[in-house]
Design a protein around this nucleic acid. Structure first.
Length: 581
DNA sequence: GCCGTTTTCGGCCCGACTGTTTTCAGTCG
């Protein structure tokens, strides 16, 4: 059983225990354990085999045994018993806003409700309102929740959430009385998927701003309205034509409180808890309004002052996941994170030669207009007929066109590349002779996704070890919220990359963001060079690389860990060096 | 269930809002 499966079971055990009315601290220990395992940078199997589980924070004796059993045998009697005792419908009921473990337990014990269907019936007949601790309002809210459960997906992609948040921010910025304004939460931390939107404003006169907020275009429901916090449901039509429904909160505090609120609402929850614990050790209390002790309070004009007040270097939002950033901030060893402006050019882009929407020249001119100094082409190879993959003859034509454009364009360079398929046996879709005509080769899996983990790992490692392969494309093939990646031992892939010097792509298409940030961190530790590739299929897609930089920052990467921070001449020199090997 | 510069037991982050209450429990982030 792998990392994600183990984490999912630990988290489910925590939830099932909550539904049984267990101590919240015991339940939380399982949730915390799940988080620690899901953010593990190494291969879980190795950690278990080498007896290093107990050294992980939050993993004690019980969780060590639990995880070991799951990894070794694939199941756990304790978990099976728990599942048999707690009806699955109760877990479903928790997804309804306003229903937590206590209320679900009461509904189950007093009315025998153990499915969403029975809950609907009980609400329709008015039984729920009669329960102690419930009432008409609660019953209405449950009915509303049941209705929205079907139409509102849980999480959305970062790029979608950014669009929705932008619309709300535009409606608030510049209002009278608005001093500072920022989107916080997981959008500010640049997580790859987002649950809801948190906006923070500082003002001396919050009520009128709240009034505007709950009436902004797209707001279809107001679920709470107070002087410091209001919540709405907002709907927006996306460029794809599909509509998206999300929750959005607005918090308004005084300008003096703003830095504390900004830190608090940026999260993550785990980072916030760690910070408040640290404050306690300083004899201080940290909340969304102040950093203060009995006698004194620490004046902070911005977030950096808060960290400084607790003896820490400034921690960028992307690192606030409680995965070691506090320790490094204390020792002054935090990485100097890569920035958007460090990117000098992009590889792995498609044109009308394969399945892109713009011509070679259009793509190059768009990249130059964005301020980049080079563009790498990586159209599909011959096997991928569905994406109009290039035959060797058409490759020759494209290479010729690149030569012509390179003569024509001033201060800009196009690098010749291919996104060459990794065939089922790990060999490449073009022969070595043709591959050596390119400046660089991106090797990607586009077929036989259902292979066993062992076969897939062997297949990809063979490609990584191929002397003409420069970089590995989308390492797991995942599509966020749509499709899990193929089964592959990334630790083995990274190890091969570290040995051969083959780069690993951070595919910056916001549908993919693959390699993920957790493995970026691991790759950096192993000395693997990463490369941020937009995988653009049109001129608009070139800007994807910003999302790739977000992932890189979450993965603790510095400028020197990312290949395309190099200038064009240095890139050309490196490609030439590799071809001569 | 975890954990330790108030340590091996007794704590465990903290406040807003809602709806049900008549002083507070539950939920959420």
């Amino acid at each position: 059983m792998d990392r994600d499966q183990v984490a999912a079971i630990l988290s489910e055990i925590g939830t099932l225990l909550e539904l049984q009315g267990e101590s919240p601290f015991r339940c939380n220990a399982y949730h915390n354990g799940a988080r620690v395992i899901s953010q593990l940078e190494e291969d879980l199997g190795s950690v278990v085999r080498e007896g290093r589980l107990s050294s992980l924070p939050g993993i004690g004796e019980t969780l060590r045994e639990t995880i070991t059993t799951l990894v070794n045998t694939g199941h756990l009697p304790f978990y099976d018993d728990l599942k048999a005792k707690v009806p699955a419908g109760l877990v479903q009921m928790l997804r309804i806003p306003g229903l937590g473990p206590k209320k679900v337990k009461a509904l189950h014990e007093q009315l025998g409700i153990d499915t969403l269907e029975k809950l609907q019936v009980a609400c329709d007949s008015g039984q729920v309102a009669k329960l102690r601790g419930f009432g008409g309002k609660t019953q209405d809210n449950i009915l509303q929740g049941l209705k929205s459960l079907s139409e509102m997906g849980n999480r959305v992609r970062l790029d979608q959430a950014v669009l929705v948040a932008h619309g709300l921010v535009e409606g608030l910025r510049g209002l009278p009385g608005v001093k500072r304004l920022e989107v916080c939460g997981s959008i500010r931390r640049r997580r790859e998927t987002i649950k809801d939107i948190d906006i923070l404003v500082s003002s001396d006169d919050p009520i009128p701003i709240m009034e505007v907020f709950v009436k902004l275009p797209g707001v279809i429901q107001v679920t709470g309205q107070g002087s410091t916090k209001s919540s709405v449901v907002v709907q927006k039509i996306m460029p794809s034509g599909r509509s998206l429904t999300m929750n959005a909160d607005l918090r308004i505090v005084s300008d003096a409180q703003y830095p504390f609120a900004l830190h608090y609402f940026t999260g993550s929850k785990e980072h916030g808890i760690a910070m408040r614990l640290r404050a306690q050790k300083y004899g201080l209390k940290l909340n969304e309004y102040e950093l203060a002790g009995d006698a004194k309070s620490v004046a902070c004009k911005d977030e950096a002052d808060i960290f400084r007040g607790l003896g820490l270097d400034y921690i960028p939002p992307e690192l606030r996941e409680d995965t070691g950033e506090m320790e490094d901030a204390e020792k002054h060893t935090l990485p100097k994170l890569i920035e958007y402006r460090d990117i000098r050019g992009v590889f792995h882009n498609h044109t009308t030669y394969s399945d892109g929407g713009n011509t070679l020249q259009e793509m190059a001119e768009a990249a130059q207009a964005m301020g980049l100094s080079y563009l790498g082409i990586g159209d599909h190879s011959q096997s991928l007929t569905i994406a109009n993959g290039l035959t060797p003859e058409r490759v020759q034509a494209q290479l010729k066109e690149i030569d012509a454009l390179n003569k024509k364009m001033k201060g800009f360079r196009i690098f010749k590349g291919t996104e060459c398929d990794i065939l089922a046996d790990g060999s490449m879709d073009f022969d070595d002779d043709l591959l050596s005509k390119f400046d660089y080769v991106v090797a990607s899996v586009h077929s036989y996704f259902k292979m066993s983990r062992e076969e897939m790992t062997e297949r990809i490692v063979r490609a990584v070890r191929h002397p003409r392969v420069t970089m590995l494309g989308h390492a797991t093939g995942r599509l966020l919220l749509q499709r899990d990646g193929y089964q592959v031992d990334l630790e083995a892939v990274l190890k091969a990359a570290a040995e051969t010097g083959t780069m690993i792509e951070i595919n910056a298409d916001p549908h993919r963001l693959d390699l993920d940030w957790v493995h970026c961190k691991r790759a950096r530790a192993m000395g693997v060079m990463l490369v941020i590739n937009p995988d653009a299929h049109s001129t608009g897609g070139l800007a994807n690389y910003f999302f790739g930089v977000d992932v890189a920052r979450r993965g603790w990467l510095e400028k020197q860990n990312v290949f395309n921070t190099l200038e064009a001449d240095a890139v050309a020199k490196e490609f030439a060096r590799r071809k001569a090997l």
